[in-house]
Design a protein around this nucleic acid. Structure first.
Ligand SMILES: [Mn+2]
Ligand SMILES: [Mn+2]
Ligand SMILES: [Zn+2]
Ligand SMILES: [Zn+2]
Lengths: 137, 137
DNA sequence: TAGTAAGTGCAATGGAAGTGCATTTGTTAT
DNA sequence: ATAACAAATGCACTTCCATTGCACTTACTA
């Protein structure tokens, strides 16, 4: 089991208190989070710091951004061994219309999508909306 | 061939100068447009009017909204006989990373997406990003 | 341990979306 | 045709999220 320090170090970013806390927060949350979510969890910290921390995490492929159509960008930890660097996010995302939460369905890869002649597909964003398992129960 | 008046009347909204102009603008554009695009095309008109016009068009299923991941909502005319009322937008959208334009691929329907047990899929947003036919030529 | 680079906090900005209210325009009934 | 009503438009203002500049603090490294 890798420690948080080890994760950060392996991504070549400095280990700071703030970063460790935010990383831990993301691990514990099982759903994608907004910047406001993080803000609410760390009221003593400055918004800008949280913002830049998550941006750094994004650049270093620690988290990936999710646009679930709510208009607010969400973030979730990349899975171990995910290679965002090479191609973006192959898995699909599910947004619950009831509880308003968004989760990564990392096991559900996006199928090959055909595009017309002349078009070149570089990546695909796929968001399914509906009712999540917790809400449909 | 239906006139613009006839289109608007068939959707039960009042025919006004502004609405006809915006409708015409949308027909001529072959790509999805932002509110700013419309704003730039009609500098004499007030933003609010344009905003509310497009919202009315959306409600009446004259246009549909597209979230292509750029963070700015775009709009495009619904195809004749498209039934947005029943289910949202079955076709996929293509966003060009080069010219930054987004188009409807109305012939390319979104495939059935499997979700895990307990999840209920209500609708799907699928955006393919890459290079469009004009830019790849 | 001094010097440098990176991280953090505060203040301010910008863009897009949305709303309240007064005015104008279109529709309908007399 | 005109009055009465409803819908459309214009203006001003607000809110929310994202983003930046700059000063200060903390962490690395020579
Ligand atoms: Mn994900
Ligand atoms: Mn479309
Ligand atoms: Zn739910
Ligand atoms: Zn293009």
């Amino acid at each position: 089991m890798e420690t948080i320090e080890q994760v950060l170090e392996s991504k070549n970013i400095r280990v700071t208190a703030m970063r460790m806390l935010i990383y831990k927060f993301l691990v514990e949350k099982e759903v994608a989070v907004t910047l406001s979510d993080i803000e609410n969890a760390f009221e003593k910290a400055d918004r800008t710091t949280l913002y830049r921390t998550i941006k750094t995490f994004e650049e270093k492929d620690i988290v990936h951004q999710i646009d679930d159509g709510t208009g607010i960008t969400k973030y979730a930890l990349c899975e171990k061994g995910c290679n965002c660097e090479i191609e973006t996010d192959l898995h699909l995302h599910f947004h619950c219309n009831n509880c308003n939460e968004t989760i990564c369905l990392t096991d559900h890869k996006i199928p090959q999508i055909k595009v017309p002649d002349g078009f070149v597909s570089e990546n695909v964003n796929l968001v399914v909306k509906g009712i999540c398992d917790k809400c449909s129960g």
